[in-house]
Protein backbone atom coordinates (compact mmCIF):
# COMPACT_ATOMS: atom_id res chain seq x y z
CA UNK A 1 0.00 0.00 0.00
CA UNK A 2 1.29 3.44 -0.95
CA UNK A 3 1.48 6.29 1.55
CA UNK A 4 -0.57 8.57 -0.71
CA UNK A 5 -3.19 7.11 -3.02
CA UNK A 6 -5.16 9.44 -5.24
CA UNK A 7 -7.55 7.46 -7.37
CA UNK A 8 -9.62 8.81 -10.28
CA UNK A 9 -10.00 12.17 -8.68
CA UNK A 10 -12.08 15.04 -9.99
CA UNK A 11 -12.44 18.50 -8.59
CA UNK A 12 -15.10 20.72 -10.10
CA UNK A 13 -15.65 24.20 -8.76
CA UNK A 14 -19.08 25.80 -8.50
CA UNK A 15 -18.53 27.81 -11.66
CA UNK A 16 -18.13 24.54 -13.53
CA UNK A 17 -14.35 24.82 -13.91
CA UNK A 18 -12.62 21.45 -13.60
CA UNK A 19 -9.40 21.93 -11.62
CA UNK A 20 -8.63 18.20 -11.54
CA UNK A 21 -9.90 15.58 -14.00
CA UNK A 22 -9.61 11.83 -13.47
CA UNK A 23 -6.26 12.17 -11.73
CA UNK A 24 -4.57 9.17 -10.15
CA UNK A 25 -1.29 9.46 -8.28
CA UNK A 26 0.54 7.12 -5.91
CA UNK A 27 3.39 8.22 -3.67
CA UNK A 28 5.55 5.97 -1.50
CA UNK A 29 6.43 6.61 2.09
CA UNK A 30 9.56 8.75 2.34
CA UNK A 31 9.41 9.84 -1.28
CA UNK A 32 10.22 13.39 -2.45
CA UNK A 33 7.89 14.46 -5.27
CA UNK A 34 7.76 17.71 -7.20
CA UNK A 35 4.38 18.73 -8.59
CA UNK A 36 4.90 21.09 -11.49
CA UNK A 37 2.89 22.65 -14.25
CA UNK A 38 1.81 25.95 -15.65
CA UNK A 39 -0.29 28.42 -13.64
CA UNK A 40 -3.82 27.21 -12.82
CA UNK A 41 -3.12 23.63 -13.92
CA UNK A 42 -4.47 22.20 -10.64
CA UNK A 43 -1.24 21.86 -8.61
CA UNK A 44 -2.47 23.74 -5.57
CA UNK A 45 -5.89 22.10 -5.73
CA UNK A 46 -4.16 18.71 -5.72
CA UNK A 47 -2.15 19.42 -2.58
CA UNK A 48 -5.10 21.16 -0.91
CA UNK A 49 -6.95 17.87 -1.26
CA UNK A 50 -4.14 16.16 0.65
CA UNK A 51 -4.68 18.33 3.71
CA UNK A 52 -8.43 18.45 3.20
CA UNK A 53 -8.70 22.13 2.43
CA UNK A 54 -10.53 20.95 -0.67
CA UNK A 55 -12.68 17.87 -1.06
CA UNK A 56 -12.61 15.92 -4.32
CA UNK A 57 -15.87 16.06 -6.25
CA UNK A 58 -15.31 12.43 -7.18
CA UNK A 59 -12.67 9.83 -6.41
CA UNK A 60 -10.64 8.98 -3.33
CA UNK A 61 -7.68 10.61 -1.63
CA UNK A 62 -5.95 8.40 0.90
CA UNK A 63 -3.11 9.77 3.03
CA UNK A 64 -1.39 7.42 5.46
CA UNK A 65 -4.34 5.05 5.32
CA UNK A 66 -6.92 7.77 5.98
CA UNK A 67 -9.58 8.47 3.37
CA UNK A 68 -9.20 12.22 3.58
CA UNK A 69 -12.43 13.06 1.75
CA UNK A 70 -14.43 11.15 4.33
CA UNK A 71 -12.97 12.94 7.33
CA UNK A 72 -15.79 15.09 8.77
CA UNK A 73 -15.13 18.82 9.10
CA UNK A 74 -15.04 18.57 12.87
CA UNK A 75 -12.19 16.01 12.71
CA UNK A 76 -10.02 17.63 10.06
CA UNK A 77 -7.76 19.03 12.78
CA UNK A 78 -6.71 15.49 13.74
CA UNK A 79 -5.57 14.83 10.17
CA UNK A 80 -3.67 18.13 10.01
CA UNK A 81 -1.75 17.36 13.20
CA UNK A 82 -0.21 14.47 11.29
CA UNK A 83 0.84 16.71 8.40
CA UNK A 84 3.18 19.64 7.96
CA UNK A 85 2.27 22.41 5.55
CA UNK A 86 4.57 25.10 4.16
CA UNK A 87 3.15 28.03 2.20
CA UNK A 88 4.49 30.50 -0.29
CA UNK A 89 3.37 33.44 1.88
CA UNK A 90 4.78 31.85 5.09
CA UNK A 91 1.57 32.43 7.09
CA UNK A 92 3.39 33.44 10.24
CA UNK A 93 1.70 35.38 12.99
CA UNK A 94 3.49 38.74 13.05
CA UNK A 95 2.76 39.45 16.70
CA UNK A 96 4.22 36.16 17.90
CA UNK A 97 7.91 35.40 18.29
CA UNK A 98 9.67 32.69 16.30
CA UNK A 99 9.35 30.34 19.27
CA UNK A 100 5.63 31.11 19.70
CA UNK A 101 4.99 30.65 15.96
CA UNK A 102 6.68 27.25 15.89
CA UNK A 103 5.00 26.20 19.14
CA UNK A 104 1.59 27.48 18.03
CA UNK A 105 0.06 24.16 16.94
CA UNK A 106 1.48 22.17 19.85
CA UNK A 107 0.36 24.79 22.34
CA UNK A 108 -3.19 24.73 20.96
CA UNK A 109 -3.16 20.94 21.13
CA UNK A 110 -2.49 21.11 24.87
CA UNK A 111 1.01 19.61 24.73
CA UNK A 112 3.02 20.11 27.94
CA UNK A 113 5.43 23.06 27.98
CA UNK A 114 8.49 20.88 28.61
CA UNK A 115 7.74 18.80 25.51
CA UNK A 116 6.99 21.91 23.45
CA UNK A 117 10.35 23.44 24.45
CA UNK A 118 12.17 20.27 23.44
CA UNK A 119 10.38 19.90 20.10
CA UNK A 120 10.64 23.57 19.14
CA UNK A 121 14.37 23.61 19.93
CA UNK A 122 14.92 20.54 17.76
CA UNK A 123 12.81 21.91 14.88
CA UNK A 124 14.64 25.25 14.93
CA UNK A 125 17.99 23.45 14.98
CA UNK A 126 16.91 21.39 11.95
CA UNK A 127 16.09 24.49 9.92
CA UNK A 128 19.18 26.35 11.13
CA UNK A 129 17.43 28.99 13.21
CA UNK A 130 18.91 28.24 16.62
CA UNK A 131 19.19 31.46 18.61
CA UNK A 132 16.34 33.23 16.78
CA UNK A 133 13.63 32.09 19.19
CA UNK A 134 12.84 35.54 20.52
CA UNK A 135 12.86 37.34 17.16
CA UNK A 136 9.66 38.54 15.55
CA UNK A 137 8.95 37.64 11.89
CA UNK A 138 9.29 41.26 10.76
CA UNK A 139 12.92 41.20 11.91
CA UNK A 140 13.74 38.15 9.78
CA UNK A 141 14.65 37.85 6.11
CA UNK A 142 12.31 36.07 3.68
CA UNK A 143 14.42 32.94 3.81
CA UNK A 144 14.45 32.94 7.59
CA UNK A 145 10.69 33.43 7.71
CA UNK A 146 10.25 30.45 5.41
CA UNK A 147 12.53 28.42 7.72
CA UNK A 148 10.27 29.33 10.63
CA UNK A 149 7.33 28.12 8.57
CA UNK A 150 9.17 24.85 7.88
CA UNK A 151 10.07 24.50 11.57
CA UNK A 152 6.40 24.95 12.46
CA UNK A 153 5.47 22.32 9.87
CA UNK A 154 7.95 19.71 11.12
CA UNK A 155 7.75 20.41 14.86
CA UNK A 156 5.29 17.57 15.33
CA UNK A 157 7.44 15.23 13.22
CA UNK A 158 4.81 14.67 10.51
CA UNK A 159 4.85 11.76 8.12
CA UNK A 160 4.00 14.09 5.23
CA UNK A 161 5.35 17.55 4.45
CA UNK A 162 3.30 19.48 1.92
CA UNK A 163 5.06 22.50 0.43
CA UNK A 164 2.94 24.78 -1.74
CA UNK A 165 5.36 26.92 -3.73
CA UNK A 166 7.67 27.46 -0.74
CA UNK A 167 10.23 29.35 -2.81
CA UNK A 168 7.76 31.50 -4.74
CA UNK A 169 8.57 34.63 -2.73
CA UNK A 170 12.31 34.05 -2.45
CA UNK A 171 15.39 34.89 -4.50
CA UNK A 172 17.20 31.99 -6.28
CA UNK A 173 19.98 31.69 -3.68
CA UNK A 174 17.57 31.59 -0.73
CA UNK A 175 15.28 29.24 -2.66
CA UNK A 176 18.13 26.76 -3.01
CA UNK A 177 18.83 26.95 0.73
CA UNK A 178 15.16 26.34 1.54
CA UNK A 179 14.99 23.31 -0.77
CA UNK A 180 18.16 22.03 0.86
CA UNK A 181 16.47 22.24 4.26
CA UNK A 182 13.40 20.41 2.94
CA UNK A 183 15.59 17.75 1.34
CA UNK A 184 17.45 17.32 4.65
CA UNK A 185 14.15 16.78 6.45
CA UNK A 186 13.15 14.22 3.83
CA UNK A 187 16.38 12.32 4.31
CA UNK A 188 16.88 12.60 8.07
CA UNK A 189 13.28 12.32 9.24
CA UNK A 190 12.13 10.01 6.42
CA UNK A 191 9.27 12.44 5.86
CA UNK A 192 7.36 12.15 2.61
CA UNK A 193 7.61 15.46 0.78
CA UNK A 194 5.15 16.74 -1.83
CA UNK A 195 6.37 20.04 -3.19
CA UNK A 196 4.50 22.23 -5.62
CA UNK A 197 6.81 24.48 -7.61
CA UNK A 198 7.39 26.04 -10.98
CA UNK A 199 11.02 26.82 -10.19
CA UNK A 200 12.75 25.10 -13.10
CA UNK A 201 16.23 25.44 -11.67
CA UNK A 202 15.35 23.80 -8.40
CA UNK A 203 13.50 20.91 -9.99
CA UNK A 204 16.35 20.23 -12.37
CA UNK A 205 19.02 20.43 -9.68
CA UNK A 206 17.34 17.95 -7.34
CA UNK A 207 16.77 15.01 -9.71
CA UNK A 208 13.70 13.78 -7.83
CA UNK A 209 10.40 12.40 -9.06
CA UNK A 210 8.60 15.08 -11.06
CA UNK A 211 4.84 14.97 -11.70
CA UNK A 212 3.73 17.45 -14.33
CA UNK A 213 0.14 18.62 -14.55
CA UNK A 214 -1.69 20.34 -17.36
CA UNK A 215 -5.37 21.31 -17.25
CA UNK A 216 -5.96 19.12 -14.22
CA UNK A 217 -4.45 15.91 -15.58
CA UNK A 218 -1.02 14.33 -15.16
CA UNK A 219 0.86 14.66 -18.40
CA UNK A 220 4.23 13.45 -17.17
CA UNK A 221 5.46 11.46 -14.18
CA UNK A 222 9.19 10.72 -14.17
CA UNK A 223 11.52 9.39 -11.49
CA UNK A 224 14.67 11.53 -11.28
CA UNK A 225 12.91 13.83 -13.68
CA UNK A 226 13.37 17.35 -14.79
CA UNK A 227 11.15 20.35 -15.37
CA UNK A 228 9.12 19.69 -18.50
CA UNK A 229 6.10 21.94 -17.94
CA UNK A 230 7.46 24.47 -20.43
CA UNK A 231 7.54 21.88 -23.17
CA UNK A 232 3.90 20.86 -22.75
CA UNK A 233 1.17 22.68 -24.64
Amino acid sequence: MKFIEIKHCYKLYRDGVAAISDLSLFIDKGEFVFITGETACGKSTLVKMLYREEKPTKGTVIVGGINVAKVPNSKVYKLRRKLGIVFQDFKLLPKLTVYENVAFGLSNAGVANSIIRQKVRLALERVGLKGKEKSFPKNLSGGEQQRVCIARAIVNEPKLLICDEPTGNLDPKTSKEIVKVINKINKEMKTTVVMVTHDKEIVNSMRKRVVTLSNGVIVDDTQKGSYVADEID
Partner: peptide
Protein backbone atom coordinates in the same frame (compact mmCIF):
# COMPACT_ATOMS: atom_id res chain seq x y z
CA UNK B 1 -8.99 35.88 10.13
CA UNK B 2 -5.46 34.92 9.09
CA UNK B 3 -4.71 33.86 12.64
CA UNK B 4 -7.81 31.64 12.55
CA UNK B 5 -6.73 30.22 9.18
CA UNK B 6 -3.28 29.39 10.55
CA UNK B 7 -4.85 27.78 13.60
CA UNK B 8 -6.92 25.57 11.32
CA UNK B 9 -3.94 24.66 9.16
CA UNK B 10 -1.73 23.63 12.07
CA UNK B 11 -4.39 21.27 13.35
CA UNK B 12 -6.29 23.20 15.97
CA UNK B 13 -9.79 21.96 16.67
CA UNK B 14 -12.69 24.34 16.11
CA UNK B 15 -13.48 24.51 19.82
CA UNK B 16 -9.90 25.44 20.67
CA UNK B 17 -9.89 28.05 17.88
Amino acid sequence: SEEIEIMRLVGTSNNVI
